[in-house]
Design a binder for these strands. Structure first.
Lengths: 198, 198, 198, 198
DNA sequence: GATGAATGAGGTTTCATTCAT
DNA sequence: CATGAATGAAACCTCATTCAT
């Protein structure tokens, strides 16, 4: 499914709509300051409104976080599936996955993707549930590729375990990697690939 | 320096003292519930005292977090240096480092070590500074070993980069690995080593 | 500038607005009980609201004190300039000034004026600064009149010094003088004038 | 009665005793920072002890304030009576009183004297009572002199009123006068005398 | 859709005071 | 006499949330 189709289906919010702006702004804010340290007043003020007005769009602050994360994963899934189509070998597929995840983490498109990890705890179980479903789908794609690589002897440890390692390595980049620094995102991807594939 | 010497030097708190119990309890609490969601009342009540009493020992809540993290790194450094002494080859040294960090992250000894990553933002710059110094020392040990491994062609990417990857992979284990699960800590260490060393 | 103009300019708060009521109530409370002994709960409860609600209007308790004092001086300045216009001789001007200050200190209009002296210390330097500017303007008016009186030989000590003495004498009245007592405010003014003018 | 006699009678504390040091330190502290803003920890730490230890000497913080003020007035009374003995005329007596009060307010001897005014409210009625008695005696001395001056036409307003004015003028000097400045204490005394005596 | 004014629960912190040692 | 640890009430303040307009 394409992004446009997802918007029409109501699965992700049109980024040009008022709600879309809200989510984008929230994503950036939560990423920069953290969810707990971002107040609804902060968010509203960045949107040029008063805090009370937010509650017309979302029932509470947590729902905003939930929407930010959920839509980020949905968009990441779409991008990932698009990328996989163009990859022939399993090695290329892994490279495509790494590329997509680096983009999700450091690209300008989607500030909300990385929020998931540190702010996961701030979601109630009800709000976690729909995200977990999406996340499973997302991880299943990785698993399929890594399992095949392991079967072919291209990586030294079993697919599920390797996914954990790679995910950790990639998420950690938020703490040290700057897209504008000496190491380009492309080089980062290549290096990570080299590090684990023999 | 040994742990006993560190205690005598006032660098780490005697775990049997009142302050030591406070720090240990705080570490566990902050790890389980997160720093922001842990209230001083929670902490005090676990210690069997009233919230005001905490402020006899530390000037504010943040100072407790600072102490928890600082002492955890100090202890980790000691354990790491002890372990390195007994390693002969550089490969054994890397295994020792991985072992120490897995212990720091999942061992019963030191619940405070992993807090550093998610709660770093809750420290003011003044409180970050002394930790950064310790952290540099800690990372320097890793760098030395990994640089040598790279020079010897044992790993595929440069030492600094590989450290970031390994750190990420190890920190991520907090989200999925249970020491009591099917995969033992020892096996985890071995698998991570295999994943990146050729 | 008239009081109405000051309100329009945002320099003083409309006494009929919610904020104006807040300031008036705070002024009285701070005067009666002192700033430190007045709690935000006290203030809120007199206003028929909860303590948290105060912080919608002012960022903290000190800002309320600051506003109370600042506006009191602003109003006092207006009254003083109005009164001076109607005075012909310099002697009449001094009488007018004394009258205004007695009114400021004991009148029903402005309970905030006298707070300045005992509560000055409770303001941070940032909050003192704007008040100091106003105070200088206020004192300059006194100085001009007293300097002229000294030049004409009507008072025995130099204007600046005499102002200190008169200010002290007038502020001290808060400790012993009751407007409803035997000595009327008018008589008090006259007596003070007699005491220092020959 | 001399100071030595007062010490022997237990009416004032020997300044060289531990208690005397406590009171002197408290007086300075309360004067500099205000009673409410001075914590018992501050005081204790200046005395080189811990806060709990203070309560061996005084039952509570307020009692310290009470003692500081009470002894200050007692000492001031002694100095005043000594000074009056050496004055011949009523004019000289007034000058002596002014001199004594300037010394009490700005001298190095007795930092506690001026505390009375701003901190009066912090005393309960029971603690105010014994001070009121002393204060009456103190004020009576002033009244006697000023009444005589009024009777002789040397001042323009009745003694009680003039005392209020002079007290206010003198207490106000705490806010602007520095003994080390251009205007000497002696000159200040002389100017105040000139300001009100014709 | 948005505002502005509150709510109210809950947070951290302060600090005089107590008391066993 | 003094310590050190704790008490406990009360303080200021935060902030998501509500709701009449």
């Amino acid at each position: 499914m394409s992004t446009e189709q997802l918007i029409e289906a109501g699965l992700i919010t049109d980024p040009d709509s008022a709600k879309g702006r809200l989510l984008r702004t929230a994503a950036r804010l939560f990423k920069d300051k953290g969810f707990n340290r971002s107040t609804v007043r902060d968010l509203a003020s960045e949107l040029g409104m008063l805090s009370g007005s937010l509650f017309y769009h979302y029932p509470n602050k947590e729902a905003i976080l939930q929407a930010v994360i959920e839509e980020s994963i949905r968009r990441a899934l779409v991008r990932m599936e698009d990328a996989l189509v163009q990859a022939d070998s399993v090695s290329e597929k892994l490279q495509a996955l790494i590329h997509c995840e680096v983009e999700a983490v450091h690209g300008v498109v989607d500030p909300g993707f990385v929020i998931m990890v540190p702010e996961w705890r701030n979601l109630s179980e009800e709000n976690q549930a729909p995200i977990l479903v999406l996340r499973s789908a997302y991880e299943a794609v990785w698993r399929a590729v890594l399992d095949q690589m392991y079967a072919e002897g291209l990586i030294a440890v079993e697919g599920g375990l390797m996914r954990h390692f790679i995910r950790g390595a990639l998420m950690e980049t938020t703490h040290w990697f700057k897209a504008s620094g000496k190491l380009s995102p492309r080089a980062l991807e290549e290096q990570l690939y080299q590090a684990v594939v023999r």
